[in-house]
């Protein structure tokens, strides 16, 4: 797809602000940190067709950090899966866009997630399914750094390597913050790259996970690992709240916080550089 990924990132961030601002509260920090990855995947690297969201053999994304639902919805809407107006229904009664990703409610969502750790295992199951079907799909999955404290992540990591699932590409949104504080202070997951390597994964460490070129280069490198017999983990060193300074400044407080419509509007100007 021919497009300016940096502009797409701005669109995604603005739509995240709009829908969470409209609602008044949301998981804003960990949504904003993912814009570059989602833009790269949905607008450049994934084999998908919004007109045929359930097409057999398509690439899939499992957002295991399910609370980043609004970021995925903003991306899907921009990519044409559904009308952007629907973003304003986020978390309203009867919505198709719940706080956490739901494959049975939202067009384009490939797996229901929200109970941390589980989506990653589901993605491993999806990757195994794709291998068995020999359909050539690539399965992408995003986990949080706090989520990486879940034991199930490492159960799945071990299994994916043992089964040589080189069609599986994981991303860690390593923004270094979780609800109760910094990841390092709460229960440190470092050295993260060493852990994944020790579990038998290819590891790609991206210095700036909010730099679209670095992210795209990493995704392409990860895709080229097919045939290596190993799944790949891309560690994205990101900034929680990236794009809106006052949200970044909240630190761990930006995991789930109030956002007024006025704040959202100001944030959109900031994102657009106006």
């Amino acid at each position: 797809m021919n497009c300016d990924l940096k502009e797409i990132c701005k669109d995604i961030r603005c739509d995240i602000m709009t829908c969470i601002g409209h609602l008044g509260v949301g998981h804003i920090g960990g949504c904003l940190s993912l814009a570059e990855l989602l833009a790269v995947l949905y607008f450049a690297e994934m084999n998908i067709d919004p007109a045929e969201p359930k097409k057999a053999g398509r690439d899939r994304l499992v957002c295991s950090k399910g609370h980043a639902g609004p970021a995925v919805y903003a991306t899907l809407a921009n990519r044409g899966y559904f009308d952007k107006k629907e973003l304003l229904t986020l978390n309203q009664g009867g919505t198709h866009l719940p706080s956490h990703c739901d494959m049975n409610l939202t067009t384009g969502i490939d797996m229901t997630t929200g109970s941390l750790g589980q989506g990653f295992s589901c993605a491993v199951g999806v990757a195994l399914g794709s291998k068995l079907e020999k359909d050539g799909a690539t399965i992408f999955t995003i986990i949080g750094d706090g989520e990486s404290q879940e034991g199930q992540i490492w159960e799945a990591a071990m299994f994916a390597a043992a089964k040589k699932l080189d069609n599986l590409i994981g991303f860690t949104d390593y923004n270094k913050l979780q609800i109760d504080g910094s990841v390092a202070e709460v229960n440190d997951i470092a050295p993260l790259a060493d852990k994944w390597a020790a579990f038998g994964w290819n590891v790609i460490d991206v210095a700036d996970g909010n730099d679209v070129e670095q992210v795209q280069k990493a995704v392409r490198e990860a895709k080229a690992n097919r045939g290596s017999g190993k799944p790949t983990m891309v560690i994205l060193n990101t900034l929680k709240g990236c794009g809106v300074q006052w949200i970044v400044d909240l630190g761990a407080g930006n995991h789930n916080c109030p956002v007024s419509e006025e704040q959202a509007e100001a944030a959109i100007h900031e994102i657009r550089g106006e």
Binding site: V62, M103, D110, M111, G117, Q118, G119, F120, S121, C122, A123, V124, G125, V126, A127, L128, G129, S130, L132, E133, G151, Q152, E155, A156, M158, F159, K163
Partner: peptide, 26 residues
């Protein structure tokens, strides 16, 4: 061999992997 999978002593992972396989039509 293509229908039997031993996940080892990791029941939580087994359950969610099964869900992933189910989403793929298994």
């Amino acid at each position: 061999p293509e229908q039997m999978f031993d996940c080892g002593v990791a029941e939580a992972n087994m359950a969610s992997i099964a869900a992933g396989l189910s989403s793929y039509g298994f």
